[in-house]
Simulated scan of single mutants.
Amino acid sequence: MNRLFSIILSLSLILTLTGCWDQVEIDKKAFVVAIGLDKGKDNMLNVTYLISNQEYASQQGGNTNEPATEIIAFTANDVIASRNLANSVIAKEISYDLLSAVIVSKSFASDKRFLRYMYDTTKDREIKRSTSLIVTKEKAKTFIEHNKPKLETRPHKYFTLIMEHGIKAGLIPNLI
């Protein structure tokens, strides 16, 4: 009786240890570093993704012909739907694990629909509440395309470091 009880207990514990069934390998993910949001036509949203190239990041010390980032732009109904739309053209699974900034144009930030779109970002569990919101004078897509950091080779750290230094210098208010 005691032996049967220990076998049943062992089997039930083994069944609870199978937590890796939904695991995704890191090389099968596309890590979005920044999301750009602009007004689109007919209540649509122009979305721009700045995606980090993981092969470039892993080639430290070696030369590679691949760019450090990839930029894709498209039109979507909202931020949640934009991920599914991006997954239809990118082979890797879109991930917001390294997302450090949401960039919006000044004209879109002053639009009455802006809060509705920002509310959608709070519904996504991968978007952290500490993600920085950057408002630019030009369109967000233009800002992302023309922003080429000279000293930072890791695009996933660039926006985080810029915000930290701006807060430390007193140029950006510390709201966290």
Rank of each mutant, 00 (worst) to 15 (best):
I162T: 15
N174P: 03
I35R: 03
T136V: 13
E152I: 09
M118D: 14
V79W: 01
R129V: 07
Q60E: 14
E93H: 13
M163Q: 14
D42L: 01
E55Q: 15
H165A: 10
S110K: 11
D124C: 04
L45V: 10
I172R: 01
I176C: 08
F31V: 00
N174V: 03
Y158N: 09
T69K: 06
L17R: 03
T69Y: 05
I172Q: 02
R129W: 01
I7Y: 14
N147I: 03
E138M: 07
K123A: 13
S107C: 00
T69Q: 08
T121G: 01
E152Y: 05
L9A: 15
F114T: 09
L15I: 09
F159M: 04
T48W: 00
I35N: 06
E55A: 15
K39F: 01
E164Y: 09
P67G: 15
L133H: 05
A140D: 04
S82Y: 01
S105P: 00
L4R: 13
Y96D: 06
R154T: 15
E126C: 04
D27R: 05
P67Q: 11
E66D: 08
G166T: 07
E138C: 05
G61T: 10
F74A: 10
L45K: 01
S130D: 12
I7L: 12
N53W: 01
G40D: 02
I127S: 01
T122I: 07
T75R: 05
I35M: 06
I167Q: 12
D120K: 12
N2V: 12
L98P: 02
I8L: 11
N2H: 13
L85W: 02
C20D: 06
C20P: 00
S95F: 02
L133G: 03
G19A: 15
I26T: 08
N63M: 09
E55C: 07
E70F: 10
P173Q: 14
R116I: 11
N63W: 10
A140I: 03
L15G: 15
Q59T: 15
T48G: 04
A81Q: 03
I14Q: 00
N84T: 12
S52D: 08
N65V: 05
K28R: 14
N63K: 13
L13M: 12
N84M: 10
I72G: 00
D42W: 01
A76Q: 00
K106I: 03
I144N: 03
N43H: 07
K128F: 04
L133M: 11
I35S: 08
R116S: 14
E66L: 14
D42F: 03
V47C: 06
I72F: 06
H156R: 08
A73H: 11
L50Q: 07
V24Y: 08
N77A: 14
N43M: 07
